[in-house]
Design a binder for these strands. Sequence first.
DNA 1: ATTCTCACCTGCGGGC
DNA 2: TGCCCGCAGGTGAGAA
Length: 271
Amino acid sequence: MPELPEVEVTRRSFSDRIAGGEIQAVWLGKPLRWPLGCGLSSLVGQKVHAVRRRGKYLLLDLDRGLLLIHLGMSGSLVFAAELPPRGPHDHFELLTSQGHLRLHDPRRFGAVVFAESEQSAVAVKLLGRLGMEPLTEQFALAPFSRGLKLRRSAIKQVLLSGDLVVGVGNIYACEALFRAGIRPTVRAQRLSVARAARLHQSIREVLSRAVEQGGTTLRDFSSAMGESGHFQLEAAVYGRAGQPCSICGTPISQIRQGQRSTFFCQSCQRK
DNA sequence: ATTCTCACCTGCGGGC
DNA sequence: TGCCCGCAGGTGAGAA
């Protein structure tokens, strides 16, 4: 589910409300992708100071250390003064004086991990390889273009890998490549600077527009306020195999790249 | 070193 | 109606 826009929309939907809250209790359900990495009681009494985002990770700053939260493929957070009764797919709760945060994650590819600092081994393992943040000044054309030149893989795979630019998942990779008129299978290193510039711009546009729209709700994503996203209504290619391209009418193609579906227009994305 | 495949887990929709 | 298969928003680990 959650790519950068969904994670950012989630962050904004509870960051201010949880800030300053003191942790009163922590509850863990079924195992997630990784163990929490600390005792539950060591978190109790600490305050949550802020919620930041790095790539698709949420970082909850505590008095001592931070919690890294990843939503995996099917995760979502809810934050409210009172939570409804737990369901079978609720696996983590942070009860604070400001309200209760709950992770709902049917597939349990998500994770909540404690790190003593961003320099700690576990934080570096998870965050260390991450590339540029696409919605900040850090995401400049020159390093992006230079990075592409070093990669022989298909451009779609490079976008998904997250080591050049973070936050672009399967939906937004397809959408950004469509907007840039670039075929997903072309080798990254074969893109000219001009075409890299177009892609650079498309990534920024698609991601910021998706954030504006509250993210993409395909199945059940919603913000921590319970609000669904609307970007799926603007998707030009993702999930639209066989439907006419909005630009030229050519039926949208679906192929497999690295065990993932790729959607594109053969006519608008020639190379 | 980069690149590729697999694994993790559950639910859902399509075809038979 | 029910079963089986493939597929789904991510990404670290390990192999090639």
